[in-house]
Amino acid sequence: MPVISYREALNQAMREEMEHDPNVFIMGEEVGHYNGAYKVTQGLLQRFSERRVVDTPIAEMGFAGIGVGAAMVGLRPIIEFMTFNFSLVAIDQIINNAAKIYQMSGGQFHVPIVFRGPSGPAVQVSSQHSQSFESFYAHVPGLKVVMPSTAYDAKGLLKSAIRDDNPVVFMEGETLYGMTGEVPAEEYTLPLGKGDVKRAGTHVTLVAWSRMVHTCLDAAKVLAADGIEAEVVDPRTLRPLDTELIVTSVKKTGRCVIVEVGWPMAGFGAEVAYRVQRGCLDHLDAPIERVTSDDVPMPYAKNLEDEVQPQVKDVVAAVRRTLYLD
């Protein structure tokens, strides 16, 4: 099986869907001539022309809204935010329009649109560029929220997101673009709303998405050296959430640690924790643990930045707490 990067997997997904459906186009800042700020759209302009690969001025609210309007009348836009930090100036379009129109119109107009781009902290880009807004979007009915952690998931899920008739917020891991993984040469899609067990284990369930899946896998290796087998569950889609997969795992292990790079207050992990206690109360041997970033805007200095974000050691410590080991 070919091994390609997460970035290339996303590129393939868009390329294939644009080949497949002439109504699919991509729009965003630097997506065309510049070949993408993160090179995710590399080569698409050459293949599909300016008509379908549309460079925009810096006007997120404007081009996000244009995407919504175009989607209402039958196109299938992919709107790229250079980072999801900039989606905040377009959030009116995403929440007040994209998420509402199907319902507001009594089912007459649906909005098949993908808002995609990198999300979460990168490296030393400080407070305004290091944010994780999945809990904002996952809060909103009418949206779907997808956060793939591997190249394989990224391609299969992005293709499904483009084909979905609802607005999909597709958040890519900014630090995952270069990560490689096996991706089949033949076409495939992955269903939205279905999670994946990234590592099987019996003692504790780690729930994580996007980059934190890898932090959890690293933590699982450390734990395995002590004889602790962690199961790593990646919901992949936060909305709709594959609650059943998580609950099934926690029923088996009796312990749950939720790891997210977002802030603790009202973070998405809080919702996961609610669902776990709802579904697994009689199976829990310990309080559900959450590992999150610290409740602060992201500092710039590297050592401080590392301190703020969840690290392998933090996950290991949380797991040990659920096992009453320390």
Binding site: G65, A71, Q93
Partner: peptide, 8 residues
């Protein structure tokens, strides 16, 4: 908010 939608 609907002006961009119309443009769309």
């Amino acid at each position: 908010g609907h002006v961009p939608i119309a443009a769309g």
